[in-house]
């Protein structure tokens, strides 16, 4: 592997790493393999589409041209849980849906993460009644909660980016292995802006 030719000058590899793969701290030689894997996971996490109600519409809108989830390697909504890494539970989970939700979650390959999108999924929201599961965390371990009814696409992107940060830092999976619990991170709501879209990146 070529070395930098001198101070201030970058090698091809270094340049690629700096500009093309912004988040990578080490280069390919010095990185711990675990970091590399986490980095790759964070940047190609595909969501399982689990749209349930109004929030699903916003989730699809986030995948559309204007918000362009593809920037984060997330545009491929997989119908098959076997191909998905992140389950975005978008909307209200009814008592009848809960077993299906759990089954889809069980069918997903490890490593897997869950975003609870919207107040309905997080806590039952305004529907505190017999039909709705009061918080999807009773059924699956939740890593990030996105607030809002519906969360704006900006909020969803913020939640996704936060999760990407967590995936990259790696403690998440260790913790799941130990306690079976999700990360339980609450992000702030981001108001929908006029174009151009403001995106708050998650802390890395």
């Amino acid at each position: 592997m070529s070395k930098p030719n001198g101070p201030g000058e970058k090698s091809f590899v270094q340049g690629l790493l700096d500009d093309g793969m912004g988040g990578l701290q080490h280069n390919a030689i010095t990185a711990r393999i675990e970091d590399l894997v986490n980095w790759a996971r964070a940047r190609s996490s595909w969501p399982a589409n689990f749209g349930l109600a109004c929030c699903a519409i916003e989730m699809m809108a986030t995948g559309g041209a204007h918000y362009d989830l593809a920037r984060f390697g997330m545009e491929v909504f997989r119908a098959s849980p076997r191909q998905a890494d992140i389950m975005i539970v978008a909307g209200r989970v009814s008592q009848k849906m809960a077993p299906v939700l759990r089954q889809v979650y069980d069918q997903m390959m490890e490593p897997k993460w869950v975003i609870s999108m919207g107040v309905c999924a997080s806590s039952g929201g305004m529907f505190n009644n017999y039909a709705i599961v009061q918080g999807v965390d009773q059924v699956v371990p939740v890593d990030v909660y996105a607030p809002g009814c519906p969360p704006t696409p900006e909020t969803l992107i913020h939640a996704i980016e936060t999760l990407h940060g967590l995936i990259e830092n790696g403690q998440l999976l260790k913790r799941r292995a130990q306690t079976g619990a999700g990360a339980d991170v609450h992000v702030e709501a981001v108001p929908a802006g006029d174009a151009p879209v403001q995106v708050l990146l998650g802390t890395r």
């Binding site: 909307g91 209200r92 009848k96 009644n129 709705i132």
Partner: peptide
């Protein structure tokens, strides 16, 4: 159907 039954009538 019924996977999205929300109990809105009751609420």
């Amino acid at each position: 159907i019924g996977y999205l039954h929300t109990g809105m009538e009751k609420t």
